[in-house]
């Protein structure tokens, strides 16, 4: 770790003015930032501890939606009765990620802002455009089993590692942020970005802005959802591919479909055109396969991760099948339904 100064913000205003200073980083749960500092990947000049700001609450909104405080621990969110009732897909996705200990500490905002787990990004002995812009991307042509098949660039093929964000993407969540210029709302689809030429920038959050909460709109999907995560061991591992699927069925016909993929791109991956293909069709393998093929049509492998294209296609079909059956994937019973 580098040497840094530490201050604890007691109010949001204090945090906002503290973060305005260059070299400052916000510390919430710290499960990712402290880790990155230990690997000498993150070297903030000063840490602004915001963990005591009053942003831990979870609120049931009158419109049937939810407001998740930026500092709500992941475990609190996943086990909250209102979340389990109103956004069971989100609760399930959170429980698919990390470990019980990490979920007790990691926060909503921190989860949104967690950085890729690409081994090259984490290893200062190797080049990495995300860590040192312009140095190159050794994952291309290297060990890239975990890497992106969609939306990658020649500068970076890293993936966003979150499970929670995949569900948030499927649920069209909105990220509430506050900055020097006031408050604004960022739709989740616009919050994370693709790497392009600037893979060092993960999100559209501006310098000096702080996430205050995340709104999850009323979920019209009832039991027709599933979060299916496939990985190299059955727990405590990042996704090779994950799928958040949700369907609204009317008279046996798909009225609305959401499919978000994790582990495949620099951001949770949504393809609304592919989702639209499902609308008006009876739920079934044929329809699901068509949508899955559309989603994966632009996918490109890099050798070690070629298999993820086919794996993702099958996972989409299965997750949609689970959603249609109203049989969401259990996160403790490892048998895929």
């Amino acid at each position: 770790m580098n040497r840094f100064s530490y201050i604890r913000a007691e109010t949001l205003d204090e945090a906002l003015s503290a973060i305005a200073l260059p070299g400052s980083a916000l510390l919430a749960g710290g499960t990712n930032l402290v880790d990155l500092m230990k690997y000498d990947v993150a070297k903030p000049a000063r840490l602004v501890d915001i963990s005591r700001l009053p942003l831990r609450g979870i609120e049931a909104l009158d419109d049937g939606g939810l407001r998740l405080g930026a500092l709500a621990p992941n475990a609190d969110t996943a086990y909250d009765a209102r979340v389990q009732e109103r956004a069971p897909l989100l609760a399930s996705a959170i429980l698919a990620g990390a470990s019980a200990q990490l979920r007790n500490v990691a926060t909503t905002g921190g989860n949104l802002l967690q950085r890729t787990r690409c081994a090259y990004f984490y290893d200062p002995c190797t080049p990495c455009n995300k860590r040192e812009p312009g140095s190159g991307c050794p994952a291309i042509g290297g060990v890239n089993r975990m890497h992106a098949i969609l939306g990658a660039s020649e500068a970076c093929i890293a993936v966003h590692p979150s499970d929670m964000c995949v569900a948030l993407a499927a649920l069209d969540a909105r990220v509430n942020v506050q900055g020097p210029g006031g408050v604004r709302v960022i739709p989740i689809a616009d919050f994370h970005r693709l790497p392009g030429e600037q893979p060092q920038i993960d999100s559209t959050l501006l310098a000096g802005e702080i996430i205050t909460s995340v709104d999850v709109p009323a979920d019209p999907f009832g039991p027709h959802h599933s979060y299916l995560k496939l990985r190299d061991r059955l727990s405590y591992a990042f996704a090779l591919v994950s799928v958040a699927a949700a369907l609204r069925l009317e008279d046996g016909i798909i009225a609305q479909a959401r499919v978000a993929l994790g582990g495949v791109a620099h951001k949770p991956w949504r393809d609304q055109e592919a989702e639209a293909l499902l609308v008006g069709l009876p739920p079934g393998r044929e329809a699901f396969d068509q949508a899955a093929r559309a989603i994966l049509a632009p996918a490109v492998g890099h050798g070690g991760n070629d298999f993820k294209i086919e794996l993702a296609r099958r996972a989409v079909v299965r997750a949609l099948s689970q959603a249609a059956a109203g049989a969401p994937q259990s996160q403790s019973d490892k048998r895929v339904r």
């Binding site: 081994a119 290893d123 002995c125 190797t126 060990v143 190299d232 061991r233 727990s235 591992a237 403790s332």
Partner: peptide, 18 residues
């Protein structure tokens, strides 16, 4: 690089309880 890239418990998987 001649280097083991998954040199962590995160990436070198040993069986977990599940």
């Amino acid at each position: 690089f001649g280097k083991v890239m998954n040199h962590s418990f995160q990436d070198y998987h040993v069986p977990a309880n599940a």
